[in-house]
């Protein structure tokens, strides 16, 4: 075998040149890209983790708010129902009271009017009977006696009504 120092030196230099060229033109730029990519992925992962965390927190807050709203809604509905019941009872009792008052008022007025009407009717009937009896018997009856007789008859009629 032909071992020559010059050839060995030539090959060492050749290898060194290739090593230098590949290191600066290939390995370093590609590794730099790998590092940048890894950094970007890491940042992305961190951002994703943060987003997931934020989302979880927001979900929790949302659930909490929903629960609070539910409770508030239920409370409002309950209060409204209670108030409505109370109000209804108030309205009903007021209406009943007013109705009773109106009824009593009407009843009072009616009785008075009835009494007045009866009184008027009695008076008219008395006058009419006196006139009729004067014409029939040809004499005028005593006013007091007539009045008593008429009243008795009218009361009888009223009773029978």
């Amino acid at each position: 075998m032909d071992i020559q120092l010059t050839q060995i030196l030539f090959q060492i230099i050749n290898f060194s040149v290739v090593l230098g060229a590949l290191t600066f033109l290939l390995y370093k730029p590609v590794i730099k890209i790998f590092d940048e990519r890894a950094l970007r992925i890491e940042e992305g992962q961190k951002a994703a983790e943060l987003a997931i965390k934020t989302k979880d927190e927001l979900d929790k807050e949302k659930k909490k708010a929903e629960n609070e709203h539910k409770k508030e809604r239920a409370k409002i509905i309950n209060d409204a129902q209670e108030e409505a019941k109370q109000r209804a009872q108030e309205i009903i009792s007021t209406a009943r009271k007013e109705t009773k008052e109106e009824q009593a008022k009407l009843l009072g007025g009616w009785k008075e009017e009835k009494t007045q009407l009866i009184k008027e009717a009695k008076s008219e009937m008395t006058d009419a009977i006196i006139a009729i009896s004067a014409k029939v018997i040809g004499k005028t009856l005593d006013t007091k006696a007539q009045q008593k007789l008429i009243d008795e008859e009218i009361n009888l009629i009223i009773k029978n009504l």
Binding site: M1, D2, I3, Q4, Q7, I8, L9, Q11, I12, F15, S16
Partner: peptide
């Protein structure tokens, strides 16, 4: 396939 190359690689 040349011993000089392989020796130089081994030396490096």
């Amino acid at each position: 396939a040349d011993i000089n190359t392989t020796i130089s690689l081994a030396l490096i």
